[in-house]
């Protein structure tokens, strides 16, 4: 439930966010003990690749949630990517430039931004990839539920 904009509610929400109370982080696509490669995205050569692909299909996450970041799995080394995430309408929620070389094939958590991005329950989240050449990247989304 979204806390209404009254003073007590704001205090409670801020307190809960800063202290991490009720924050629960999960990956989507969900994994079952094996590290997830994520959703495979292909970038175009000098353009956006294929149409937006679902990181979270509509109704896949039934609670209000916050997009916190992304994990990236390169199956194609030495590439420069642009990752763009939208809400499916498509309004762009965030975008990042990712530069990977062969010797840095693994990459850590990519923060969405200083603040997580709020999405209502059942919202769709999609992503697409651009690049100088045709390359492939696996993307998993880290999201939180229960911040409020």
């Amino acid at each position: 439930m979204v806390t209404p904009l009254n003073y007590a509610g704001i205090q409670a929400a801020n307190y809960n966010n800063i202290t991490g109370r009720r924050a629960r982080y999960a990956l989507i696509p969900a994994t079952t003990g094996v590290p997830g490669v994520g959703v495979i995205l292909t970038c175009g050569a000098g353009a956006w690749g294929a149409a937006y692909a679902d990181l979270a299909a509509a109704k896949a996450i039934v609670l209000d949630f916050w997009i916190c970041g992304f994990f990236i799995d390169t199956t194609d080394a030495a590439a420069v990517y642009e990752l763009q995430v939208s809400d499916g309408t498509p309004v762009v929620l965030c975008e990042h430039r990712v530069e990977l070389a062969a010797i840095t094939a693994n990459m850590g958590y990519l923060r969405a931004g200083p603040y997580p991005i709020f999405m209502v329950a059942n919202a769709q989240v999609q992503a697409r990839l651009g690049g100088a050449g045709t390359k492939v990247l696996g993307v998993s989304m880290l999201y939180a539920t229960g911040l409020e």
Partner: peptide, 12 residues
């Protein structure tokens, strides 16, 4: 409240 809760945040 909007900032901490992430409402309406869009990064470009």
């Amino acid at each position: 409240h909007d900032a901490i809760s992430g409402r309406r945040v869009r990064y470009r």
